[in-house]
């Protein structure tokens, strides 16, 4: 079910990214229309977060210890290893791909379903990668910033990448032929809910301090999200070892235009 949703979202996004009439609108018109939508959707998400997700995450934080939350974070991080392995492979990082596979094998077994990161202790550091980065590597354009209902800030490439990586989630594959059974459905939706509640709880202090320190929260989140994506710019068609040669955050302080 999750896979179908992800696929649907991917295709609808690709459709959204292209103008159905084939006519060219002025870029600034499109931008300002998108900005109006983005701010409205951001406010909607903000209200949902304030009234539903944040209170649940607060409750979750109250009944769990940091140790438990660390186990939960590790469990979901481990489920991302197969996607990392595939994307490392697609980007020609063969050693990293092997390491992701080894990490998944070690942590799923000895690390008790990934809840403990045994592999890092053995020197097998995390080699996280994503389909978003793979597309960036092959110079797929990022597209405009837009806010997705519930999910939050995104770009078309980010969202397609997110959907593609979700397809590689081993938990979905493990439960794939058991979708008629109630426990499997509960496990699928329950784990997704737990993943996002845990993530929200772990980011509580950061998001609170960001909101407190801003006069336009939407502009802050948009800026931070897009700056974080600048790191992908330098990897387009560049040899892997050159990817970190230029600082993405270097800019001219004398520049007066925004």
């Amino acid at each position: 079910m999750k896979k179908i949703c992800a696929l649907f979202l991917m295709f609808s996004l690709i459709a959204c990214a292209t103008n159905p009439n084939g006519t060219k609108m002025k870029a600034s018109d499109e931008e300002s229309k998108l900005e109006v939508y983005n701010r409205a959707m951001f406010n909607f998400n903000y209200q949902v977060d304030k009234k539903v997700l944040k209170p649940i995450a607060k409750g979750y934080k109250a009944i769990t210890t940091q140790g438990i939350r660390n186990r939960v974070t590790n469990f979901f991080n481990n489920l991302e290893e197969p996607a990392s392995a595939i994307n490392n492979l697609l980007q020609g990082k063969f050693a990293d791909s092997g390491q992701s596979v080894a990490r998944f094998a070690v942590n799923t077994t000895l690390g008790l379903l990934g809840t403990f990161d045994v592999a890092s202790g053995w020197g097998l550091d995390k080699k996280q990668n994503s389909f978003d980065a793979t597309m960036a590597k092959y110079c797929v354009p990022d597209g405009p910033f837009f806010v997705v209902p519930i999910l939050g800030p995104a770009t078309p490439r980010y969202l397609v990448g997110w959907g593609a990586d979700a397809i590689a989630d081993p938990m979905d594959w493990a439960l794939f032929d058991k979708q008629d059974e109630d426990w499997a459905v509960i496990a699928t939706y329950g784990s997704t809910a737990l993943k996002y509640i845990n993530k929200r709880a772990e980011n509580m202090a950061l998001l609170d301090s960001l909101e407190e320190g801003s006069v336009d929260f939407y502009a802050t989140i948009k800026s931070a999200f897009l700056q974080n994506r600048q790191k992908f710019q330098s990897i387009c068609a560049a040899p892997v070892e050159d990817s970190a040669s230029a600082a993405s955050y270097d800019f001219d302080f004398e520049d007066e235009e925004d």
């Binding site: 801003s214 006069v215 336009d216 939407y218 502009a219 802050t220 948009k222 800026s223 931070a224 700056q227 974080n228 600048q230 790191k231 993405s248 955050y249 800019f251 302080f253 925004d258």
Partner: peptide, 25 residues
């Protein structure tokens, strides 16, 4: 010190984006 960059996010750029968006509205 003129800027702090945390996980690729520059505080100066973030503040400029935020303040100019605010002033515009």
């Amino acid at each position: 010190i003129v800027d702090i960059i945390i996980e690729n996010v520059s505080l100066a750029i973030t503040a400029r984006n935020e303040y100019t968006a605010y002033i515009k509205q």
